[in-house]
Amino acid sequence: MNIFRLTGDLSHLAAIIILLLKIWKSRSCAGISGKSQILFAIVFTARYLDLLTSFISVYNTSMKVIYIGCAYATVYLIYAKFRATYDGNHDSFRVEFLVVPVGGLAVLINHTFSPLEILWTFSIYLESVAILPQLFMISKTGEAETITTHYLFCLGMYRTLYLFNWVWRFYFEGFFDMIAIVAGLVQTVLYCDFFYLYVTKVLKGKKLSLPA
């Protein structure tokens, strides 16, 4: 555990809770991609199956349980409790174009050809692109609520901080995981455009709106 890893995890946790609170307090999931949230629920489920097979630490187990629980709670709020506010027409990204290639890649490129390991790899690859339906939705409507941008910023910072964590671990522990690093780089790059808009607009008190 190093400072980048810890702040990365906390940033991830903050993102998840910001989104849950936003939906709960406003009684609305307007502007939120339900498809991205389903993908994240799949990501956590596929990755944390090792909860059943191995114990690493109290921190590890509790964070995993919290992430999974919050992911399903978010999906429930969007598709059941506040379904009437869900903007399905604008959430039109074709997720099969992500899930199918990512599934194929996980079968082809993995550390060990075993069910748990392939599911772990699948979750790493899927996570790297799971935000695309959300970004697509924002580009389609041309705007995002400020609270939604805070969510996206925390979510983007999480994998960025993990990149620093991996540099740290490589130098001080000789540890590296090529699959996680490459996927983490892809994931971070996908946020770059958003980071730019967040710093130049949202942090200066303006709403995030894209030119028509």
Partner: peptide, 10 residues
């Protein structure tokens, strides 16, 4: 070329 024995990360 990989060291994937540790799955302690989230």
């Amino acid at each position: 070329l990989t060291n994937n024995t540790s799955k302690d990360e989230l």
